[in-house]
Design a protein around this nucleic acid. Structure first.
Lengths: 184, 184
DNA sequence: TGTACATCAGTGAACGCGCGTTCACTGATGTAC
DNA sequence: TGTACATCAGTGAACGCGCGTTCACTGATGTAC
């Protein structure tokens, strides 16, 4: 990257660095000034793209929901594949995932965020509905909630490093087996 | 409470206020000065009991794990009751619960915290092992992980207000039904 | 029962720090003609 | 193809704020004798 006055893709860079920083040290460690430092840019530059710190977190969460939604579309109709893909998304996008479910950091009603979240939760619900009802061990209205709880809980525990002694196991494969046995 | 020089139970008060404040506005909103203000005490007083902000969060998490462990003991051997009690604990102690699984806020190896966490996770694992193996739909090694993921995910989604349209339902009862159908 | 003294709990002033935010600015880019 | 100009992206100095932390202190409590 040459030393030009214009960065060229500062918005993209800031989002990437933010995800990385959050993955490393949690959302509390995030500051616009630190991101500016990492991007080699003046400390006031990030505000140009995100207005303020809160705006950045909201943008990151919205991006996360959009990406997760795209993943859900790709595996639609397959319960096991959905569970695997969901957990793999969380594990490979830890910075995004941690922010997506921190309601306390996402105040206000940003239109993009609300839309992305709605779309993704609708896709999750549709995914469960598409499963053959005879194969489900749980009545439909709660089956979606149970499945979401399972994958969200697993992903959260994994990211928190609360799951010990299984660090060599692939989390995607593990949740796949669990989902198959519980909902298969 | 008379206007005495000594507060009398400042440690207890600070912990309670911290849990309340976190429940209201998330862990980011927590500061020793704000807690001192709420307790009507000089801003340097809290540090007397917790050394620093991090120490307070660690003490709160340790207390949470201890309480949750006690709850687990009370329902030992009953899978459904365990699930219900777990979620009820999270819902009625949101301040504690939010901090307990924020590894990024609990740096260092505080002995009390490590002990409380180990005890509680061991109790959870023992709870699952005590279930009749013939009734479990999942092989034991992963059954505990699946059950924990389910209740933790459910509790987290509930606390995040990610579960919509069910606000009038009792979360304990709901997870009880799910656990019964999945693991009963 | 009284006294002396150590210990504990809380005070309040002071400090330095990193932060978000504002603002007038300047360099670069794109577009109309 | 060239020129003028609007718009956009980034700068850097300045500000005020709340915070954690330190420190010498003081009031209250408990205990030894």
């Amino acid at each position: 990257m040459p030393d030009t006055y214009h960065h060229g893709s500062l918005r993209r860079t800031i989002l990437d660095q933010a995800a990385e920083l959050i993955a490393e040290a949690g959302p509390d460690a995030l500051s616009l000034r630190e991101l500016a430092r990492r991007a080699g840019v003046s400390h006031a530059a990030p505000a140009h793209h995100f207005v303020d710190r809160s705006g950045l977190l909201i943008a990151l969460a919205a991006e996360g929901f959009t990406r997760l939604g795209d993943v859900m579309v790709a595996v639609a109709g397959d319960m096991k594949a959905t569970a695997v893909a969901y957990v793999r998304f969380a594990v490979t996008n830890p910075g995004h995932y941690q922010v997506m479910f921190r309601r306390d950091l996402l105040t206000g009603d940003d239109a993009d965020l609300v839309a992305a979240r709605s779309r993704t939760t609708a896709l999750l619900a549709a995914g469960v509905r598409s499963v053959d009802p005879d194969k489900l061990r749980v009545p439909l209205p709660v089956a979606g909630l149970a499945a979401w709880s399972l994958v969200h809980g697993f992903a959260s525990l994994w990211l928190d490093r609360s799951i010990e002694g299984v660090s060599e196991v692939d989390p995607g494969q593990m949740i796949g087996e669990i989902a198959e046995q519980l909902f298969g």
